[in-house]
């Protein structure tokens, strides 16, 4: 399995940082500790792996878990033509993750989106504002406890 090569390398290099590595449905996935993120990303960006593209950055809300939010990163390497999924958990009480803006420019908007939708904050982000919702919006719509039909109109609705 070629997918496992990068996972083995990560486990060997960061024995403490990597919690779990697997290949579910063909997607190489590594679960890491959140304090290891800033160490692992430069390693992945350099040769021989060269994950030069941050394809996607999002979050999943698990209210019943001790560490409620799970950040999900998808990286892509043009050199090896492989994708890699990185996951890490964040508790609600200290929902702060290190920002990746210094590594990828599109992390700026993607992190703003996650902040907007989930309320996870990013340490080191230059302009952490809401992306889609207006600035006066209360709550974070993609959290599981945000009601589906809740309305926050910006102008008075007609009765």
């Amino acid at each position: 399995m070629e997918e496992t090569a990068i996972l083995d390398a990560l486990k060997e290099r960061f024995p403490k940082g990597v919690v779990e590595a697997s290949v579910p449905l063909g997607d190489a996935t590594v679960v890491i500790r959140r304090d290891a993120l800033l160490a692992i990303i430069p390693f992945l960006k350099e040769k021989p792996y060269e994950f030069a593209v941050l394809l996607d950055l999002t979050c999943v809300d698990y209210p019943e878990r001790a560490e409620r939010f799970e950040m999900v990163y998808h990286l892509f390497s043009l050199v090896t033509n492989k994708r890699l999924r990185i996951k890490l958990s964040v508790p609600e009480s200290a929902a702060v993750v290190d920002s990746l803006v210094r590594f990828w420019k599109n992390a700026d908007w993607l992190e703003r989106e996650v902040f907007d939708m989930f309320g996870v904050r990013f340490a080191g982000h230059p302009n952490l504002r809401r992306l889609f919702m207006n600035d006066d919006f209360e709550g974070h719509p993609l959290r599981k406890d945000y009601p589906l039909r809740k309305r926050q109109p910006m102008i008075q609705l007609r009765k």
């Binding site: 030069a52 593209v53 941050l54 394809l55 043009l78 990828w104 420019k105 599109n106």
Partner: peptide
């Protein structure tokens, strides 16, 4: 380089 950094496809 910038295009990749921005995640262009």
């Amino acid at each position: 380089e910038n295009a990749l950094s921005y995640g262009w496809t």
